[in-house]
Each structure stands twice: as C-alpha cells, then as structure tokens.
C-alpha cells in the first residue's frame, strides 16, 4: 500500500509539473459552464440534466487525455525499467497510477461545483438528481480512466494511446445505445444494454442508485485494470 501511495503521489504531482494540467482544467471548466449556461438560457430550467446527459461525450475526449501519458511516457523514456525493477508488484503500480488519474478527474469535477451552488441559490433543484449525476459522473469517469490507462499501456506513443482510449471507450459506450440495440437481434438486446456504459449512467443520473449499476462500473474498472496489469507484464 505504501508503494501504491508513493506512486499515486508522484503521478498526481506529475500532472502539475507542466502547464498542460492547467490548460486542461481551464478548458474543461469553460466548456462545462458554457454548455450549462446555454442550456439554462435556452430552456430556462434550473437543473443539470442536460449537462449530465452530454457528460459521457465530453469525457470521451477529456479522459483519454488524462491517462494517455501515464504508461506511454514511461515506455518511451524507459523510466519503466527503473520502476519495474523496484520491489513493486505490478498491481500496486497500476493502482497508484489509476488513483492518481482518478484524483485528477475528481478535481476537475469538483471545480464544477459552483454550478449546483448557483442553482440552489436561484431555484429549488432536485438534490437527489444532482448527487446522482455527480456519482454517475465519477463512475463512468472511472470506467473511462481504466480504459484509457489500459490503452496507454499498449504503446509508447501518447497520441496513439489517446486514440485507442477514445475508440475503446466509444465502443463500450455505444453498444448500449438505442442506435446499436435497434440493429441487434432481440435476444441480444438486454445483454448489450447491460454492457453499454451509458444506460447505467442514465439511471444513476435520475437519482436511482442501484447496486447493479455500481457493480457494473466496478467490474468494468476491475476488468480493464486487470488487462492493464497483464499488458505491462507481457509487453516490456
């Protein structure tokens, strides 16, 4: 655990060792606020529903950018060789990196808090929905992070890691969408609906927190972290 914590600290600090983190956070906040305000003035409604419904799409671009560096750079600069010859278990390193990226994501999400606060001042928003929305954001974000981290472990090129991350996340998101389900034979529909990242997000976003959805996201995270461990074990 000490190892995981040491790696977590290094990676989290690492985000702020270059201006990229600040550029990233700024563009994320600006985008979120702009989308929110647009919705606010267009439909004149005091809720975050519309915002949360497009969040998976925003994350699709933003999250692979958070994770793309984590393994690819270590491979490219060969720092992996020192890291993986320290007395550490692969799983400890994977978790350290994953939690660091999670903390960075949590920070980005935290910076959107002024929105629900202004909502609370202006009107009477549905607290359950807001909490559910944020929880859903953290869960689907975690799944994207695990996918992106795995993608980063496959290559030493950050851009390729970024693109693989987007593709994998996109595929896992889209399989549960109506458009795809429509094209499938009906017996496969429930399965794919369950498999898709989006449907679980919608139900949590409505404020309905079901353990099945929690288990789903945790399994997706666990599955991709496991693949990640395997890939750094095999590809050196």
């Amino acid at each position: 655990m000490n190892t995981t914590y040491a790696i977590f600290k290094r990676e989290f600090k690492g985000y702020f060792s270059s201006p990229i983190a600040y550029i990233y956070l700024t563009s994320f906040i600006v985008l979120i606020n702009w989308l929110y305000l647009r919705g606010f003035f267009l439909i004149n409604q005091a809720n975050l529903r519309s915002l949360f419904s497009i969040l998976p799409w925003i994350f699709l671009l933003f999250i692979p950018a958070v994770t793309m560096r984590l393994w690819a750079e270590e491979r490219k600069l060969r720092t992996l060789e020192i890291l993986m010859t320290l007395p550490v278990k692969d799983v400890e390193v994977v978790l350290g990196k994953f939690f660091a990226s999670y903390a960075f994501l949590a920070l980005s999400i935290l910076l959107t808090f002024p929105l629900p606060l202004t909502l609370a001042l202006l009107g009477n928003p549905d607290g359950g929905q807001i909490i559910g929305g944020y929880l859903g954001a953290l869960l689907i974000g975690g799944a994207y992070l695990a996918i992106g981290l795995f993608a980063s472990s496959l290559t030493e090129n950050q851009i390729i890691a970024f693109i693989i991350g987007i593709l994998l996340s996109f595929i896992l998101f889209i399989v549960g969408e109506q458009l795809v389900l429509f094209a499938l034979p009906s017996f496969m529909v429930p399965f794919f609906e369950y498999l898709g990242l989006g449907s679980h997000f919608d139900s949590i976003g409505r404020g309905v927190i079901d353990t099945r959805d929690l288990i789903y996201y945790l399994s997706v995270i666990g599955f991709f972290l496991y693949l990640n461990i395997r890939s750094i074990e095999m590809k050196r």
Partner: peptide
Amino acid sequence: YLPENAPLYADMMVTEYLDFIGEVR
C-alpha cells in the same frame, strides 16, 4: 540497478526523486 542511459523522471528534483525511490522501496 542502473539501466542504460539512466532513465530518470525528468520533472522531479534530485532529492525528490531519491525520496520517491526510497519510498517505493
């Protein structure tokens, strides 16, 4: 172990880096 070309984390300061290695160890 000192790998070829000493691949170290460029963004860390010397003491910070050594501290990290010690902590991981």
